[in-house]
Design a protein around this nucleic acid. Structure first.
Lengths: 170, 170
DNA sequence: GGCAGTTACTTTATGCTTTGATCATCGTGG
DNA sequence: CCACGATGATCAAAGCATAAAGTAACTGCC
């Protein structure tokens, strides 16, 4: 082994010890992911606002309720939307006000609030959901079917990785 | 062509005209993307808050300034962070208040505000950025180097697709 | 010079979001 | 029966975000 090799080895060891892994790769990947999401989300918000004078959180809540024929308990909505319960109070209040959803107290547990789409809310949601699909389709049009497949698969792995990391902390 | 074929053709045409493509694939992909981003972002926000009592927008702004030795014009910060100018007014105000950044009026154009990291802000940012890298690294640990490579490539395509779609609208 | 249009930022109004505190209700063990 | 811990939702305070309107400063054109 030549002197230079030994020096290289010592050097790399020293660097590794002093300056921990910078995770530059992962961070760049994260920023790219964030950029894509932010761009899409901003466009969806803009379209919803311009075409329907509606906000994304309102739309998301209706989307959760669409497949719950008998309504859904507020806590379940909170979990599915991954938002805090406190957040929902005002959001639900406004959607009841605008006639899109109804809200009733559970007959078996008076702490529990049940929200459900009204006929009007369901009709409005269908209209918006159709257009939503169009917007998404347009934004993803540059990806081939194969691209979408690969991306979905990798994102599934990522989701698993995240879940794993979060479980470790807990 | 047999009758059934004609009927099939008519049927598919009719369906295509009445019920446009549902873009279910793309929507599922979008929801998966959104879920991953939301999970990561929530974890980063939580860690920043618990370890440093700092918020993500504040961190993001410092990150933009880190590589601008001579500071940055407010409009440029707005473009890079993809947030509205009005948003920055209060954010900058709070970061000046806490001593992380300085704010000066441009000597050549008195409309222009220049913000820059203070020595304190730079020091604090370095600490947080190091930990930020660790957190991201942990969240992505389940992905192989190859996975990250593929994911980055697909996200680049997606970003291109989005840009293209947005350009068409404009 | 002086007006017109543009640009940079701030202000205002509204809404989303979170954390932490509080209140009401429920189920249970004494 | 009832105190007590757990649970579900609401409230309060703070911060983030936007669009739209407003203010001030610059630039270009006559």
């Amino acid at each position: 082994m030549a002197d230079t090799d030994i020096e290289d080895w010592l050097d790399s060891e020293t660097k590794a010890a002093e300056a921990p892994a910078d995770h530059g790769d992962e961070t760049r990947l994260w920023l790219r992911l964030l950029t894509c999401t932010t761009l899409i989300e901003a466009e969806i918000r803009r379209q919803l606002r311009e075409e329907f004078d509606f906000t994304l959180p309102r739309f998301d809540l209706l989307a959760q309720l669409e497949r719950a024929e008998d309504g859904m308990v507020l806590g379940e909505v909170s979990r599915r939307m991954m938002v805090s319960a406190g957040n929902l109070t005002a959001l639900v209040e406004r959607l009841v006000e605008s006639g899109h959803i109804s809200r009733t107290t559970s007959p078996t547990d008076r702490r529990v609030q049940i929200v459900a789409l009204t006929a009007f809310g369901r009709k409005e949601f269908r209209k918006m959901a159709d257009r939503h699909g169009d917007w998404i389709g347009a934004l993803f049009q540059g990806l081939s079917s194969r691209d979408r497949e690969v991306l979905m698969k990798e994102l599934s792995k990522l989701k698993g990785s995240i879940r794993g990391a979060l479980a470790d902390n807990a």
